[in-house]
Amino acid sequence: METTREQVLDYLSEVKDPEIPVLDVVEMGIVRDARLDGDTVHVDITPTYSGCPAMKAIEEEIVRTLHAKGFEKVVVHTVFREAWTTDWMTGEAKRKLEKYGIAPPPKTDAALRPALPFAGQPKPVRCPFCGSEDTERTSEFGSTACKSLHFCRACRQPFEHFKCI
């Protein structure tokens, strides 16, 4: 049976983000495309952040996974054609994030923070534990490039937020 692009993408949904293991690289929008050319599979990926240290691990995991599915030749291309945005994450991915305890990113058109701080403040982030919007930002930078640190005044819990970009 001939392998289709959809099947390759389906296989790639087994590759998880090493920093956020509940999400796979397809639903995060990191995998941009897959093509079959003879016996070679080409996979296009795009980095979430320029310096994301997980990209190398993701690339290796893609190759390992497709090898295990019987593809001998796998070429992973890093593409920059369009810059990754959190808007590419599927709704399902955002629901999984919240369930995992990370406040998901809202749509960028409504929530992207301005470059200069006095140009306005965004809405508070909803606490993934109790749902309250009575939260404050502790730091714009967290344990990974994609997350910020917040504190919920209602349930007194610190939590992480996947930043809008």
Binding site: P47, F80, R81, A83, A115, L116, I165
Partner: peptide, 26 residues
């Protein structure tokens, strides 16, 4: 084109770099 792609990514990052330093300088 390859430079335009890298720039599109770096532009997003420069945005919060600028915000971070602005907040601190103030």
């Amino acid at each position: 084109e390859p430079l335009a792609g890298i720039a599109a990514k770096a532009f997003k990052e420069a945005r919060y770099h600028l915000r971070h330093s602005s907040e601190w300088l103030i």
